[in-house]
């Protein structure tokens, strides 16, 4: 009888519309692209493909330009992330902890590159690179992508280093650790998970970066996203683009897995522990 008096269950229209919109915007395109990648024949007006298969995978993976793009993209992302870490992490530590003249000016100049329309900046840099013979070279693309990583690799680690409790560091000095040892055994593990997130973001962003890679890299250097764009522009067959696109999901997938590990349990921090 109690049910008679219970208020009628409200339908959560807001929640439902959010779910629907999110599904349409994110999941639906993924499903469509994923389906296309494993389709041999799909003609209008069928709702599902007439024939599934891996034909286009074998065709795509048989192409030498695809393989060279995969290697280029991976080595670019690795080199850029590594260089960015080597340059930015010490700089971030300096910004977070040291007082030096021109500190704020320098700090904001790092971020200025992100504040203006990027394409104009890229064109200007391309002009300079032309003079330096860097157009169409691997290291030219490395340089341009490096500039793009500064925001994440400075701003986030600065916050991470500033967030480390100074008393913890002093306590380590107190029991006999040198400043270098304190950095290695206390500061870095404490800031570690946040910095790992920044490195991850940098890797994934670099992997997907197209504007710089295309403007500076063409025609000599072709990354996966650039190749995909040219496939989509030049090929009447959708499947090539779809297959490449699915391949491009792989780094995101690993990034997500890794991020989950870092966030849950803090096992990453302990890995650094003394």
């Amino acid at each position: 009888m109690a049910e008679t008096f219970a208020p009628p269950r409200r339908i959560d229209w807001v929640g439902i519309s959010f779910a629907v919109v999110l599904t349409l915007v994110i999941i639906f395109p993924l499903i469509v692209v994923g389906t296309w990648a494993f389709t041999n024949v799909w003609r209008y007006p069928a709702i599902i493909p007439q024939e599934f298969g891996l034909r286009f995978w074998s065709q795509t993976l048989a192409r030498p330009d695809v393989w060279s793009a995969i290697t280029t993209s991976i080595s670019l992302a690795c080199v850029v992330t590594l260089l960015s870490a080597i340059i930015c992490l010490p700089a971030a530590f300096a910004f977070a902890r040291l007082e030096f003249p021109g500190r704020s000016l320098l700090f904001f100049s790092f971020l200025a590159g992100q504040a203006f329309p990027k394409f104009g900046l890229l064109v200007a840099i391309a002009g300079i690179f032309l003079g330096l013979n860097l157009i169409g070279t691997f290291w030219g693309v490395v340089l341009i992508q490096l500039v793009g990583t500064l925001l994440f690799m400075i701003w986030i680690p600065v916050a991470a280093f500033q967030g480390v409790d100074r008393r913890m560091e002093e306590a380590a000095r107190d029991v006999g650790a040198s400043p270098l040892r304190v950095f290695w055994s206390i500061t870095l593990p404490q800031a570690g998970p946040t910095i790992a997130a920044a490195v991850l973001l940098t890797f994934v962003n670099t992997f997907y970066e197209t504007e710089g890679a295309w403007l500076i890299g063409a025609p000599g250097i072709r990354t996966m996203p650039v190749l995909m764009i040219s496939f989509i522009n030049n090929q009447p067959v959708i499947q090539y683009g779809a297959v490449l696109s699915v391949i491009l999901w792989i780094p995101s997938f690993f990034a997500l897995l890794f991020a989950r590990r870092v966030i849950s349990g803090g096992s990453f921090a302990r890995g650094f522990g003394a």
Binding site: R167, M168, A171, A172, D174, Q190, R270, G273, A274
Partner: peptide, 23 residues
């Protein structure tokens, strides 16, 4: 500090949260 024969206990205890008690 690391070369002084002093030991300090802080108000905020300042334990290293990435190490267990023994460490």
């Amino acid at each position: 500090p690391e070369r002084r024969p002093t030991g300090m206990v802080f108000q905020s205890h300042a334990l290293w949260t990435h190490m267990n008690v023994y460490k």
